[in-house]
């Protein structure tokens, strides 16, 4: 199966489509997944530039590409790590790279639809910008639904368990980030203390 066939399968038959990722574990190639994730970032940024002037909320000169990329990578990375951690202790059937692949294939509709929507926005103005926002929201909801299905299909979970796992993952991500920020702050303090000690040491014994 090539990646295009897998993508088509995930769109038309999501339950069986996502299973393809792990049905032939040893031979599954991850290069398309990486290309797809790069495409995702590219589509997001290009669609921001392509958006019609009177519809888009951000103007081209306001776009900060590094921040946009970071804003995409940080949640995705934390999702993969936390979700993998939680599924492994609750009878999940995925490896970490398969979680990644599932997530990427779930966002194929985004990659396909966002550029046409950005082009379509050139037919709308501020007064009817709601239509474009609605279309974008529909794509986002569809993608989130695909993520949901991918978790359910790839781990063979029941509906209830899938919802539970997703909620747990979200809580886990929040906790994770609280921890990271806490560590960041404390490390700063630690480095500061060490530096002060060094200064004291130099002042007393060397100079």
């Amino acid at each position: 199966m090539n990646p295009i066939q897998i993508s088509l399968m995930t769109i038309f038959h999501p339950m069986d489509g996502f299973c393809l990722i792990k049905s032939d574990r040893e031979n599954f190639s991850y290069i398309p997944s990486i290309i797809l994730s790069v495409l995702f970032v590219a589509v997001r940024i290009v669609s921001m530039y392509l958006m019609h002037y009177s519809v888009g909320s951000v103007e081209p000169y306001q776009i900060d590409i590094p921040i946009e990329i970071a804003m995409l990578i940080a949640p995705v990375l934390s999702w993969i790590v936390v979700h993998y951690a939680i599924t492994t202790i609750s009878s999940g059937e995925c490896k970490m790279r398969e979680v990644y692949a599932g997530l990427v294939y779930a966002f194929v509709p985004y990659i396909v639809c966002m550029l046409p929507i950005a082009l379509l926005s050139h037919l709308f103005s501020q007064s009817s910008a709601g239509t474009i926002t609605l279309l974008q929201n529909i794509v986002w909801i569809y993608c989130i639904f695909q993520v949901f299905v991918s978790i359910k299909a790839m781990n063979d979970f029941t509906l209830k368990k899938t919802i539970g796992i997703i909620i747990l993952t979200l809580v886990g991500i929040v906790l994770c980030w609280v921890l990271i920020l806490l560590l960041y702050g404390l490390t700063g303090q630690l480095i500061n203390t060490a530096y002060q000690l060094l200064v004291e040491f130099i002042n007393i014994y060397i100079s």
Partner: peptide, 20 residues
């Protein structure tokens, strides 16, 4: 056309999966 193509693929995948 796409739907037809994917359906064919689906049948192929599921029967192959079933055999496996």
């Amino acid at each position: 056309k796409l739907k037809k193509y994917v359906d064919k693929l689906h049948v192929k995948v599921t029967t192959w999966g079933g055999d496996d």
